[in-house]
Design a protein around this nucleic acid. Structure first.
Lengths: 360, 360
DNA sequence: TATATTTGCGTGGGCGCACACGAAAAATCA
DNA sequence: TGATTTTTCGTGTGCGCCCACGCAAATATA
């Protein structure tokens, strides 16, 4: 492994000079800078991140802003855990991480939490851009003070974000369409259930639905696909009535597609009317969803590796800060197809990490 | 973050003494050792791995022994790439990695490569225990010189390996059974094709077949499942004849299960007789297999995250060597269900890594 | 030419830990 | 008791990089 010292010797300058050109810190004549740079390139030099981290010691702070989670709305727990794990891995690199959360149903909460975050003067930011208008303001603030930022889980276009880390929502919906069609009797009816609760300007759900429809279109499959918007998952009585009504009017109903992580909450509303005869496809590996999967109530869950999303976000930002590696703009995580039999192996990373947590 | 210096000060001893008790290096009186240990625990001290790595610098060498790969037998390329990526990540931690390969069809090659490996005096070993008898000898050598080792991809019992990293083969076969059954007409015949080539004492294939059968048994599905052993994939003429014969005698044949990574090689032999009308399920995401998947020739591939297997093996061994973290005995990676539509996102990690390789 | 200012660059200390060396203290022996 | 061995422990150097300090050379000003 080649060191600054070696470069300096070869260029006949001091280590300090090499260091200056490495960090573009100025104070070097163009001649020597060119000379050093050439040698640097020829040896394909890269700074030893360990030594660098040791010397820097807590110069970087990454701030994270994601929705809060709770037992009934568990999706964001996984990215959070992924972030926690990554923190352990990078803290010895002198990277400090601070987490902030917001209420994903309140744009104001999103914006205000961000203001608090900004006051902590972070070196870089990772966040879930849940609301469009507020995000515009936020991004402007970040751009003016030149803080780099990564979008997590929600992909919106037209900003200077370093990267997006998450899933290709359209294709995941397309795959849901394929899985739904597989083995379904011809001329079956299909219901797409969408709760109004889950809004923000999170366009992922719309993209999934689009992909779902497109699968049937592109394969010229004649299926009666009916979208159903229910008002609120919290007002389950109203929802139950709504569902019962639908079920009565659709005798050929065979498949139900629920393109949100709150799949289990929707199914809960079916308790009385029953759901055993339907093929249900949902999204995300929350504990409740996995329970339904294991009970064969749900046939497939499509997961977006939420734990890895959180973990990778921190790692990628760390690589950017320390090694100066610019990541790909779009970092798509795998589209996991979960069934009863493979779900237990799906999130080993998260499970192992949670295991170490309880041990302490 | 608390440092050795702080501990030393509080215990009224020198840093050297604290260092000695941290590493059980002896030469410390019981009194002071107890005193230091107590303070260590009270502060929940853990060594700063960065500083440690910097100071140690290349004290550890991990040796890896895996089968060689080539264009037609590509499976082991992925673990190899995963290992290469991990090398980049850990080299700055002062961990040196050396790779050795062997011919997976020759037990002697396996054993001899290992002897060369041993001569390099590694601190730890990661290998694929392909042949049982040779492995017994190898493991004995390792045990006597107290070198820790991890089994990669192949799980055999009764040894003191630190861990096994790979897939639950039985369940992956079981899942193949479920996927095969899904949407298949009742009373269809199913063929399981197994090539003799791929042997070693790799029991993974047998376990997959067992799981496959068990799915049908446990669900009381009446299917005519016929095992077919073909002699050699390299002698394709003989194989083709063999296949043609089978196809003629099985008019109700609808599904083909190929429980090895050489799925594509088997399908190649079908060229004349055709395979479009069969539902084919194979294993592993080799380039050739993925090509068939994208062409709809294969309906499902089950993948075992080979890239991650290699990557994790190095990471886990590194954690063990540097931080003293003892891993779980069995580290099962996810059982990935690949279809035409999600395969492109499946191995982003490997793709991203290969991207960085070609850039250089 | 003498003085002031800028620019370019070398030097040294420090980040936290590992480990060799040797000194002081304690224990053993003659 | 004095000499010798053993045990116990403090000190110092280095790992590779970062960065503040300050000197020398180059340039500008009087």
């Amino acid at each position: 492994m080649i060191r600054i010292k070696d470069i300096a010797q070869e260029a006949q300058v001091s280590e300090g000079t090499v260091d200056r050109v490495l960090h573009n810190r100025g104070g070097v004549s163009k001649k020597t800078e060119a000379k050093v740079k050439k040698i640097l390139e020829r040896h394909n030099y890269s700074i030893n991140p360990v030594a660098s981290a040791l010397a820097l010691k807590n110069k970087h702070t990454i701030a994270v802003l994601i929705p809060e989670h709770n037992d009934t709305d568990a999706f964001w727990k996984s990215p959070y855990l992924g972030i926690l794990k990554a923190i352990e891995d990078v803290k010895s690199l002198g990277i400090h991480v601070q987490c902030f959360t917001f209420n994903q149903y309140q744009p104001s909460s999103y914006f205000e939490s961000f203001q608090v975050l900004l006051e902590s003067q972070p070196t870089a930011v990772i966040f879930a851009p849940m609301f469009l208008e507020e995000t515009k303001k936020i991004v402007q603030q970040l751009d003016t003070v030149q803080i780099p930022y990564i979008f997590l889980n929600i992909d919106i276009e037209g900003f200077n974000n370093l990267a997006y880390i998450g899933q290709d929502s359209y294709t995941s919906g397309y795959i849901a369409g394929k899985l739904m069609h597989m083995g379904l009797a011809p001329k079956s009816d299909i219901l797409i259930i969408q709760a109004r609760d889950y809004i923000g300007d999170n366009n992922a759900i719309a993209k999934r639905i689009q992909g779902f429809h497109d699968y049937f279109k592109q394969h010229h499959i004649n299926a009666g696909i009916t979208p159903l918007k229910i008002e609120s998952l919290n007002d389950s009585n109203q929802t139950k009535a709504q569902l019962n009504h639908i079920l009565n009017t659709m005798p050929a109903l065979a498949g139900i597609f629920i393109p949100s992580s709150r799949t289990s909450a929707v199914i809960d509303c079916f308790q009385e009317s029953g759901y055993e005869n339907f093929k249900i496809i949902g999204f995300d590996n929350t504990p409740q969803n996995m329970t339904y999967l294991k009970q064969d109530a749900v046939s497939f869950l499509i997961s977006q590796k939420p734990f890895e999303q959180g973990y990778e976000a921190i790692r990628i930002m760390t690589d950017f800060l320390i090694k100066g590696k610019t990541p790909n703009e779009k970092i798509y995580l795998p589209i996991d197809i979960l069934i009863k039999e493979n779900v237990m192996y799906n999130d080993m990373n998260q499970a192992m990490y949670e295991g170490t947590l309880t041990n302490e």
